[in-house]
Amino acid sequence: MATELARIPFDGRQIDIEFAWLRAERTERPLLVFLHEGLGSVSMWRDYPRQLCEAGDLRGLVLSRYGYGQSTPRPHDEKWGVDFMHRQAREALPALFDVLEIGAGRRHGVPWLFGHSDGGSIALICAASAPAMVAGLIVLAPHIVVEEVSVRSIAATRDLYRQTDLRARLARHHADVDSAFWGWNDIWLDPAFRAWDLRPLLADLRCPVLAVQGEDDEYGTMAQIEGIHRYAPHAALLKLARCGHSPHRDQPERLTEAAVAFISTHT
């Protein structure tokens, strides 16, 4: 899909964020903002955002976070802190919404957030921290705590990046693939990150939430979405058989059906 760049203030400087609109002419329909996983980008969603928006007659906004895709790369000597997802949710995303006129009383209205993995965690933080910014959430394989299975799989991914063609395959999706990979990998494998925990925030969720997890997810267990429901009992859960960490790739039809029904119910 064709993308543009939006310039936003972040961390004391101006950075560019890659984005693409889907079905922007459907101004009366809900807007779904797609937030990618730890190694994702606009292009790594492939065609799923368009398929979902067409199935639900929705508008879409797909973006690459700072350090990913064609957005401003992370300088190689810049180390992300344990709060990197909180900063994306509380600083970078609101700044982008300001530039693109998204929000209450603005051109594009209050959006739904559709987040995968780290993007799902960012969506949860955003909705809990600023309830007026978000109409609803659909989160795929979100993280609310750091599990041992996540750390093992991320360490294994580091080995693949060093020893296989994974780097070359990811390079097709990022202006600076080492910036994208090591920014994510280094902080997730930092011992300090073991204390990262979203559970204290979850009781502040007010919007509709659909949390989705694959039964074969190699990066997390059902404890992640069950934890969301424990602290936010109104959250609906979808557990998918024969599905790994990426429900939109492993079970796209089932996910689309559930997402469209959920948005329709709460719109």
Rank of each mutant, 00 (worst) to 15 (best):
T3R: 09
L5T: 07
A6L: 06
F10K: 05
I17E: 04
E18Q: 13
R29T: 11
P30E: 02
P30T: 08
H36S: 13
H36A: 13
E37C: 08
L39Y: 10
V42W: 02
S43Q: 12
M44W: 03
R46Q: 15
Y48C: 03
R50W: 03
L52H: 13
L52N: 14
A55G: 07
A55R: 11
L61N: 06
V62K: 04
G69E: 06
Q70W: 07
S71G: 06
D77E: 12
D77W: 04
D77S: 05
W80T: 12
W80Q: 07
W80P: 12
M85W: 09
Q88A: 12
A89Q: 05
R90N: 15
A92M: 10
L93C: 04
G103T: 07
V110K: 00
V110E: 00
V110Y: 00
F114E: 02
H116V: 07
D118R: 02
G119P: 05
G119A: 09
S121L: 13
A123T: 00
C126F: 00
S129A: 14
A132Q: 14
A132L: 09
P142L: 01
S150H: 02
S150R: 01
I154P: 04
A155Y: 02
A155E: 11
D159F: 00
Q163C: 12
T164V: 00
H174C: 12
D176V: 08
G183R: 03
W184K: 05
D186E: 15
D186R: 12
D186V: 10
I187E: 13
W188C: 13
D190G: 09
W196I: 00
L198D: 04
R199P: 14
R199T: 14
L202H: 13
L202S: 11
D204F: 04
L205I: 08
A211Y: 01
Q213P: 06
D217V: 01
E218S: 10
E218L: 05
T221D: 14
T221S: 15
A223V: 11
I228Q: 01
R230C: 02
P233E: 10
A235H: 08
A236M: 06
L240Y: 01
A241D: 12
R242Q: 08
R242T: 00
G244Y: 02
H245R: 10
H248G: 03
H248N: 11
P252S: 14
A258Q: 08
V260A: 09
V260I: 07
I263E: 06
T265K: 14
H266G: 03
H266C: 07
